[in-house]
């Protein structure tokens, strides 16, 4: 029996290290358009990997930028009831405060490591720069810390690697270096924006496994942003599905991908080509295109493309959940959810 869930605690299992309430981001260039990220709520527990999935332009990367204080006032405006990292209120931080925090308490890895690494500094120099900025340790200890962090991401020949430059490394190695650098200070939260999109499948699998292991071992919470449902399904504990700036469904990945309730989640799953030993499962494209920011429909933002849409969808749907009180709630914002038993995913 479905119930309205007005004030659901998203992940009450452990005390959250990051808590975000009513995050809104609007762009300065489009002052009259609706917010690009509209009312985002989530919590991250220590050691947890939370996925954020959606098509390009849905606001995933903007969310990541906001969490690290990288949305400049001239680009856009960030507002929130609160964004709390441990005991720090990020919404009120000034640039000095941010500089102390970034890389130490919250860090980020990007899709393309070649543009995120400095081409004229060796890997060792770049790692030491992070340590010098945030930790008061001697040269010898710093060097050891750098080597240890490289080893923790599966680089066996760290002593040799610290002398190399980014262009000498393969894409997978560069991304490992990025992860090592982001984890140097054992931050409370790591934001990973499409960390494996530019890599080969075999390397993707290795890196995602390492990221997950690191989160477990160090207690760092990871927000993994991806457009690839497979990446999220295989490496996250929970996930949020975002469409046009709003989360439409969230929950443990098992429930979310095996029994999607929101038509958008189901459509994304059906659109994904999947390898199968028994033959071709045809893909189903989602009809229509993502509406432009200036042309977002009233009510549920998916109503222009949704096969289930009806008159009720002209009003924004609230959250519904099937299992109130479960430790990690599967909830969705839809007036006409798909039946609980069926679903396109498997």
């Amino acid at each position: 029996m479905s119930q309205r869930a007005e004030h659901v605690a998203v992940s009450p299992a452990k005390p959250p290290v990051l808590s975000v309430r009513q995050l809104r981001i609007s762009l300065a260039a489009l002052p009259h358009a609706p917010a690009l990220v509209d009312g985002l709520d989530f919590e991250l527990a220590a050691g947890e990997v939370l996925g954020l999935v959606g098509e390009s332009g849905c606001g995933k990367s903007l969310t990541a930028a906001a969490l690290l204080g990288l949305v400049l006032p001239e680009t856009g405006q960030v507002s929130a009831a609160h964004i709390r990292l441990g005991n720090t209120e990020l919404a009120q931080l000034d640039e000095r405060g941010w500089r102390r925090l970034r890389g130490r308490d919250i860090s980020m890895i990007f899709q393309e490591p070649l543009t995120a690494l400095d081409p004229v500094l060796s890997i060792g120099q770049q790692l030491l720069a992070v340590i010098r900025r945030h930790r008061k340790v001697g040269r010898k200890v710093a060097r050891q810390l750098a080597l240890d962090s490289l080893q923790s991401v599966g680089i066996s020949d760290a002593v040799h690697l610290v002398r190399q430059y980014p262009h000498q490394l393969s894409g997978g190695m560069r991304q490992r270096v990025m992860i090592a650098m982001a984890m140097l200070c054992q931050p409370q939260v790591l934001v990973a924006d499409e960390p494996t999109t530019a890599l080969d499948v075999t390397t993707q699998a290795q890196i995602l496994q390492q990221l997950r292991q690191l989160a477990r071992q160090t207690g760092t919470a990871v927000l993994l942003i991806s457009h690839d449902l497979g990446v999220v399904a295989s490496s996250c504990d929970r996930a949020m599905v975002m469409y046009c700036g709003r989360v439409v469904e969230e929950g443990p990945v098992d429930a979310l991908f095996r029994r999607p309730r929101h038509p958008y989640t189901a459509a994304l799953l059906a659109a994904r080509p999947r390898l199968s030993a028994t033959g071709i499962k045809p893909v189903a494209a989602i009809p229509g295109t993502v509406p432009a920011v200036s042309q977002l429909p009233a009510g549920c933002r998916f109503n222009t493309r949704c096969p289930q849409a009806g008159p009720a969808c002209q009003n924004s749907p609230g959250w519904t959940t099937d299992q109130p009180g479960a430790p990690s709630v599967h909830r969705y914002a839809c007036h006409h959810p798909l039946p609980a038993a069926g679903g396109a995913g498997a």
Partner: peptide, 24 residues
Amino acid sequence: QALINAVAMLDATAGPNDPGLPGE
């Protein structure tokens, strides 16, 4: 076989003990 395993792993359908393809 390793390539197919890697895809299956990204799809969360591989067994937890699948060793994947080591190295590069």
